[in-house]
């Protein structure tokens, strides 16, 4: 089996995120970054495969320079090699442009047997990048997978759909997105945490990946933000104040009038 690559995303900490008033995109540079929580199951499945197959696990992220802290976190979870795809030109990429960057990096890392990603990111929540990256690489993708095993060099995947469970057989290479929940996700390793700061993060930019400025970032993104507006809220209702007891009684009376209660 060739190496496994996990693509993760550094997401802004919800409490610190700001929207750029000019470009209308999230200002990731100002925010604290966290590992996208939905990526944790993908990392866990990668580690279980690593234990069984003894393959190298490479972790990849596209993001600003400070996203390397998130990669180091994945190192503590068991990753062998960390690669950060970072370039000002990547900023503002939509899912297609993002998938192009990832696909180029994956090509550069090939051969690989499996690319794992979280089902979706907690910020964009589009779930589009895994299948879109796969199609750009010309390889199959399977989404929402909860278990992976290997038989005779072929991956056996358990996929959860809206209608049930599918057991699929796919020869490498392929892209898999993993369910947002697993029975168990390992914590970081103390040994690796103590070495985290010394670990090298390889940085690849647009030039390394032979991507032109037109193909990526805001310019390379076919979907564009025309405007953003705040949802205007006009107070239309009544405001009741007072002790909880009294408010509850008034509410019950109102619900009764409105026919939500039987008597």
């Amino acid at each position: 089996m060739e190496k496994i690559i996990v693509c993760v995303k550094a997401v802004p900490d919800l409490r610190s995120v700001k929207v750029d008033p000019e470009t209308h995109t999230l200002r990731r540079d100002s925010a604290d970054l966290l590992l996208n929580p939905h990526d944790a199951p993908a990392i866990e499945l990668a580690m279980r495969l690593k234990e069984r197959l003894g393959v190298e696990v490479v972790v990849l992220t596209m993001g600003p320079p400070n996203a390397s802290s998130v990669l180091r976190r994945v190192y503590s979870l068991g990753a062998d090699r960390l690669i950060l795809l970072s370039d000002r030109a990547f900023a503002g990429s939509d899912t297609l442009a993002t998938s192009k960057v990832l696909a180029k990096a994956l090509e550069k890392l090939s051969p690989f047997s499996l690319v794992l990603m979280g089902l979706k990111s907690i910020d964009g929540e589009t779930a589009q990048v895994p299948p879109e990256t796969a199609v750009l690489l010309g390889i199959p993708s399977v989404t929402n997978v909860r278990n992976i095993s290997v038989e005779n060099g072929v991956f056996i995947l358990e996929r959860v759909t809206d209608y049930g469970i599918e057991e699929l057989e796919v020869a490498p290479p392929l892209v898999v997105s993993v369910t947002t929940k697993l029975d168990y996700i390992r914590p970081p390793s103390l040994k690796r945490l103590l070495k985290e700061r010394e670990v090298e993060v390889t940085i690849w930019n647009a030039e390394t990946l032979r991507l032109s400025q037109e193909e990526v970032g805001l310019r390379g993104s076919p979907t564009q933000v025309a405007s953003v507006f705040e949802k205007t809220i006009s107070s239309k209702g009544e405001i009741w104040e007072g002790p909880p007891e009294e408010l509850s009684e008034r509410l019950i009376e109102l619900l009764r009038q409105k026919g939500f209660l039987k008597s």
Partner: peptide, 24 residues
Amino acid sequence: PLPIRALADADLFGIIVPEEYGGL
């Protein structure tokens, strides 16, 4: 056994074991 598995995966059973035997 789940928290024990987590402690094991975190290398926390290796605290007092000498480094030459895989501990910390």
